[in-house]
C-alpha cells in the first residue's frame, strides 16, 4: 500500500453474458494517483472489466469499492438501485471509444450538463468551469459549436472535458483512440498524458502500447477473462513472464 491510500478495489469480479463467461474472477486495486493500463486481445474481457468499474455492466459476483461507495454482487445480494449507481458514477468519469457526445447540445452544453443537472450547479458557474476545461483540452474556441462539426480527436477531447466537469476521483478510458484516424491519436493521448501528470487516478484500456509503457504506473494483461499478469511497464511490457503475453506483444509489434 502506498501512502496515498487506495482509491479503487475490485475483487473477484465475475461477469457472463448468457453462457459466455467474460470475466472469471478479476481483481484490481488502484492507488490514488495511479495510472493502470489494461491490455489484451479483443474478447479478453478488458473492456467489460472497465465497464464493471462504474457499473455500466453489473457483475454477477464480486465486490467493488471506490472511495466511500461499496457494492457486493452475488446471489442473495440486493441489486444496487438507480440512485446508488448514480452517486457512484458522479465520482467515476468515463470516456468511451465512440465519444457518445450529446449531438443535440453545443460543446459547452455537453460539458455543463452533468454539473448542472446532476450536481445542481448554477449555469453561470458551470459555463465558467466548462470554458476552463475546454481551454485545458485545447478547444477554447469551440464552446458554441455542435459535436457534428468536430473531428474525432476534438470530439474525444470534449468527451474528456465532459467527464472532468464532474470532478471525478477516478477516470476510466475505454479504448479512447481506437475510433480515431491515426493522425488524430496524438492530440487525445497528450491530453490524457497531461491528466496523468496532474495526478489523476486513471484506468485505461488501450492498444497504444508505447503510450501505455510511457504513462502507466502499472500495466495489466488480461487474457481469457482473468488478469493474467500485472506489474510495472518494465515488468509486463519489457519482460513478460508468460508465453501468452510474449505472443500477444510480438503479434502486436508485427502489426504496428
Amino acid at each position: 500500500m502506498s501512502a496515498n491510500g487506495t482509491m479503487l478495489v475490485a475483487g473477484n469480479i465475475h461477469k457472463a453474458f448468457g453462457d459466455n463467461e467474460v470475466l472469471k474472477g478479476v481483481s484490481l486495486s488502484v492507488e490514488r494517483g495511479e495510472v493502470v493500463t489494461l491490455i489484451g486481445a479483443s474478447g479478453s474481457g478488458k473492456s467489460t472489466f472497465l465497464r464493471c468499474l462504474n457499473l455500466l455492466e453489473m457483475p454477477q459476483q464480486g465486490e467493488l469499492a471506490i472511495g466511500t461507495h461499496k457494492f457486493s454482487f452475488g446471489r442473495g445480494m440486493r441489486p444496487a438501485g438507480d440512485a446508488q449507481l448514480a452517486l457512484l458514477r458522479r465520482s467515476v468519469g468515463m470516456v468511451f471509444q465512440h465519444f457518445n457526445l450529446f449531438p443535440h447540445m453545443s460543446v459547452l452544453a455537453n460539458i455543463t450538463e452533468g454539473p448542472v443537472q446532476v450536481k445542481g450547479m448554477g449555469q453561470a458557474e458551470a459555463n465558467a468551469l466548462g470554458r476552463d476545461l475546454l481551454a485545458k483540452v485545447g478547444l477554447a474556441d469551440k464552446a458554441d459549436t455542435f459535436p457534428s462539426r468536430l473531428s474525432g480527436g476534438q470530439k474525444q477531447r470534449v468527451a474528456i472535458a465532459r467527464a472532468l466537469a464532474m470532478k471525478p476521483d477516478v477516470m476510466l478510458f475505454d479504448e479512447p483512440t481506437s475510433a480515431l484516424d491515426p493522425e488524430l491519436v496524438g492530440e487525445v493521448l497528450s491530453v490524457i498524458r497531461g491528466l496523468a501528470a496532474e495526478g489523476m487516478t486513471m484506468v485505461l484500456v488501450t492498444h497504444e502500447m508505447a503510450f501505455a509503457a510511457d504513462v502507466s504506473t502499472r500495466v495489466g494483461f488480461m487474457n481469457d477473462g482473468i488478469m493474467a499478469e500485472i506489474g510495472t511497464p518494465e515488468e509486463t511490457i519489457r519482460q513478460p513472464r508468460s508465453e501468452r503475453l510474449r505472443a500477444f506483444l510480438s503479434r502486436f509489434h508485427e502489426a504496428h
Partner: peptide, 9 residues
C-alpha cells in the same frame, strides 16, 4: 451510457 456515466438518473 453517456448519461449514466455522468451520474444522471
Amino acid at each position: 451510457e453517456a448519461g449514466r456515466a455522468i451520474g444522471m438518473r
